[in-house]
Design a protein around this nucleic acid. Structure first.
Length: 496
RNA sequence: GGUCGGAUGGCCGAGUGGCUAGGCAGAGCUCUGCAAAAGCUCGUACAGCGGUUCGAAUCCGCUUUCGACCUCCA
């Protein structure tokens, strides 16, 4: 495989040539959801980003082991010991067991992923399924002197760690500030320093989720699961770790400290951070009340939404921006994307139906098409620049349409070039960007049949020049959202 | 307050020290029974002020402004 892929590494803050630790294998980890609630569109942007990373690496020929966790335990809203456990809180609200909540929202997450064409990872480990591994990791950290016990909880000793290592290098945080400025917060008395974070937390007697440990009953710390599980499945050092920008600090910073503290090895070679989806310039988040759920997107029933949007149009909308930029959600932007998406997909379907015809080739045409095919890879190789890649796909779409309409003879390119165009375009639509999810429901096939009948009848009346009747059919169908297009080689239709 | 990142044409959104991003919207044309679709043509944008440079929207400084993180958050 040709390796020219460059990845922007958040830690070194530069684009680096991607060189896997053990080619052709690639270890990819990304932080999954905490399953106490339904994921919203902003969450989905990150999952989509890493889905494309996973798909592209796979397409390049790498054997990717993609690990994406499910956080199903131990998330308190702060680490001062008085936060609420989101899962338990939700369990009380819905009058369910915590594990019922976890199952319910894991299922819902999986459903949403399917809708958005997000592939399941190779391994989807849960925090509660890896308590043993987490306890073992805590022991290693303790043995190395980077943690201490306090009232049944274990805290990571940031100050001790700082003697040898640099805590804060990922997020650019100044630890002296962290140590000094946050000292007056409440509930910190168990900790030596305010910057210390729990890796094991003793819980109140009425806490439902709890596990036995050498330090008493409790729950694993907030940041530990990712370290323990990435280590278990990808090794002490692995290639790529991804997540949302908002996880950089403290979550990922802590992961580095834990791994180095436990095993003395820098865990990640390339840190990738996906930027936020914003609404009117503000980060979409549940607490701000500006988030909406995938379901609300599909049926359009939310005050922020003017209409319903199809999952693939939304996925396309997200991929039209680079993953490291914020992307602002507006109805106008999404509707513009929707139209562009339809155009691209029309070209895709046109291409599938195109057959090559040989004739006199034109070298400049051959060169042009080959350049496009190479460009689209170059754009992706530049830190997964899907926005630029899509721009090239639109250039290709223009070519495809021109071939179909006979504006450019298809014979101007040789068959090899035609095949390359077809393979490249198809690979990007289907396998890499993965925006081709077809409606394969039974209803869809009935609709196909019905449309064939209707268009046959319309063809008959048009042959008799009964345009009033044919226009009526077309207008009525348009009202149902079906657009009829009369071309040289017959009539086609599409959902508008 | 600290740290970091943005400000691009009517809208969204890439990108680069000199060479057309792309999409949507808009105008004109071709095609068409009419539409739609498609193709062609058109707009010459980079927050402001300085500086570096032969040349900067792209590098540097300052200003304005928006946001993210600093507490759970994709």
């Amino acid at each position: 495989m040709e390796n020219k892929l460059k990845i922007y590494d958040s830690l070194s803050r530069e684009k680096k040539l991607f060189e896997p630790l053990n080619p052709p294998f690639v270890g990819l980890y990304s932080c999954g959801p905490t399953v106490y609630n339904e994921v919203h569109l902003g969450n989905l942007r990150t999952f989509t980003t890493f889905d494309v990373v996973y798909r592209y690496l796979t397409h390049l020929g790498y054997k990717v082991r993609y690990v994406r966790n499910i956080t199903d335990a131990g998330h308190l809203t702060n680490d001062a010991g008085e936060g609420v456990d989101r899962i338990e809180e939700r369990a009380k609200l819905e009058m369910l067991e915590p594990m019922e909540i976890v199952q319910k929202y894991t299922n819902s997450f999986h459903d949403v992923c399917r809708e958005f064409n997000i592939l399941p990872p190779s391994i989807e480990p849960t925090a509660t399924g890896h308590i043993v591994e987490q306890i073992e990791m805590i022991k290693r950290i303790l043995n190395n002197g980077y943690a201490y016990e306090s009232k049944g909880s274990i805290y990571f000793d940031v100050r001790k760690y700082m003697e040898q290592h640099h805590y804060g290098k990922l997020s650019g945080r100044n630890v002296d500030d962290l140590l000094e400025n946050t000292r007056e917060l409440d509930g910190q008395e168990e900790k030596k320093n305010a910057a210390d974070f729990a890796i094991w937390k003793s819980v109140a007697p009425n806490h439902i989720q709890r596990w036995q440990s050498p330090w008493g009953e409790g729950i694993p710390g907030w940041h530990l699961e990712c370290s323990a599980m990435s280590c278990k499945y990808l090794g002490k050092q692995f290639d790529i770790h991804g997540g949302g920008m908002d996880l950089k600090f403290p979550h990922h910073e802590c992961e580095i400290a834990q791994s180095v503290g436990a095993d003395g090895i820098e865990p990640v070679r390339y840190w990738m951070h996906a930027n936020m989806l914003t609404v009117n310039g503000d980060k979409m988040s549940k607490s701000k009340g500006n988030s909406f759920l995938p379901r609300e997107l599909f049926d359009g029933k939310h005050e922020l939404l003017e209409k319903a949007y199809a999952p693939m149009a939304v996925r396309f909308f997200m991929l039209q921006a680079h993953y490291r930029s914020t992307l602002d959600f507006t109805n106008a932007a999404l509707q513009a994307a929707e139209k562009g998406f339809a155009r691209l997909m029309n070209a895709y379907h046109t291409l599938q139906a195109l057959t090559y015809v040989s004739g006199t080739t034109v070298q400049s045409e051959i060169d042009e098409v080959n350049t496009l095919c190479n460009d689209v890879y170059e754009k992706m190789n530049d830190d997964f620049n899907t926005a630029e890649a899509i721009a090239v796909l639109f250039e290709m779409a223009k070519k495809i349409n021109s071939y179909k309409e006979g504006i450019i003879a298809i014979s101007t390119i040789d068959e090899a070039t035609f095949n390359k165009l077809k393979e490249t375009f198809t690979a990007f639509i289907k396998d890499i960007l993965a925006i081709d999810k077809e409606d394969t429901t039974e209803d869809a096939s009935i609709a196909d049949g019905l449309m064939n009948v209707i268009l046959e009848l319309r063809k008959d009346v048009r042959a008799k020049k009964d345009f009033a009747a044919s226009d009526k059919i077309r207008d009525e169908l348009l009202k149902l959202g079906i657009q009829v297009k009369d071309g040289k080689e017959g009539t086609t239709w599409s959902k508008s």
